[in-house]
């Protein structure tokens, strides 16, 4: 038996293709989450107003829910993919921790792109169904033909946000793999402490300002890329000693 001298890129490629097959559950969960998002998109808001002789009922529909649920999905998938079961699946064949991380990350990246593209498209289903209703419909966002640039900017925004959420999920998942104690610390650090206005604890608020208030798509992209690379490096560093198939 001769020894093979594998290249990292080669193994990463193989693992990536393997994960596309083995982790297809991620596709189904994306589908389910976007369908839930669509369902809630039909119930965003509405009301009625009027006088004795005139009553006006209105419903507001928006694509927000499909996007929000896609972001939920991205975050959860990031966590899920770091769990022991997924890791053991990966380590049943040739793998090192590094190749596992890189291929998982590529997988998340591709999934985020797919999710980011389908999320704004999903809202077109809401739009379509609302057009087939008998009621008058206000379409308040111009579509692909009317303003193609905005249409693609919207898709790009969705893709980049999905990648960001997946990246946060991945690093939090990696931390949890390191120790389950991380969970209470995260909950307290991220959600409880900011309630008491202790300075330096408003991490989420800071993130919202850092990403959400950015007005240039290019700078936003750079911010997210750097953030995600840092998150990835943290994930690799903290789990490089993790034991598998214990």
């Amino acid at each position: 038996m001769y020894l093979t001298e594998p290249r990292l890129t080669d193994i990463v490629k193989k693992q990536f293709l393997y994960k596309l097959n083995a982790y297809t559950g991620v596709f189904s969960s994306l589908l389910i989450m976007q369908l839930i998002g669509l369902f809630f998109g039909f119930n965003t808001g509405g009301g009625s107003s009027g006088s004795e002789s005139l009553t006006i009922n209105w419903r507001s529909l928006s694509g927000d829910m499909a996007v929000i649920f896609t972001l939920f999905w991205a975050f959860s998938t990031g966590i899920l993919i770091t769990t022991l079961a997924y890791r053991n699946d990966a380590f049943s064949f040739v793998s090192t921790r590094l190749s596992h991380h890189v291929s998982s990350f590529l997988f998340l990246l591709v999934m985020s792109c797919i999710a980011g593209i389908t999320a704004p498209l999903a809202s077109s289903v809401i739009k379509l169904i609302s057009l087939f209703q008998h009621n008058a419909v206000f379409i308040e966002t111009s579509g692909l033909f009317a303003s193609p640039v905005d249409f693609f900017i919207r898709i790009a925004t969705a893709v980049i946000y999905t990648i960001l959420f997946a990246g946060f999920g991945y690093v939090i998942g990696s931390l949890i793999q390191l120790s389950k104690l991380v969970i209470p610390f995260l909950v307290i650090g991220l959600f409880i402490l900011p309630l008491f206005n202790i300075s330096g604890t408003g991490f989420i608020e800071y993130m919202v300002i850092f990403f959400g208030f950015e007005t240039s798509l290019l700078i936003f992209l750079v911010k997210v890329l750097i953030t995600v690379l840092v998150l990835f490096a943290i994930s690799v560093a903290i789990t490089n000693k993790t034991e598998v198939r214990k």
Partner: peptide, 21 residues
């Protein structure tokens, strides 16, 4: 964390797990 060892070895035991997909 050796790619060479992983590519040239296999461990068959009851912790081998495969995706149910």
């Amino acid at each position: 964390n050796s790619l060479k060892v992983s590519a040239n070895s296999i461990l068959v035991d009851d912790t081998m797990s495969f995706s149910d997909k």
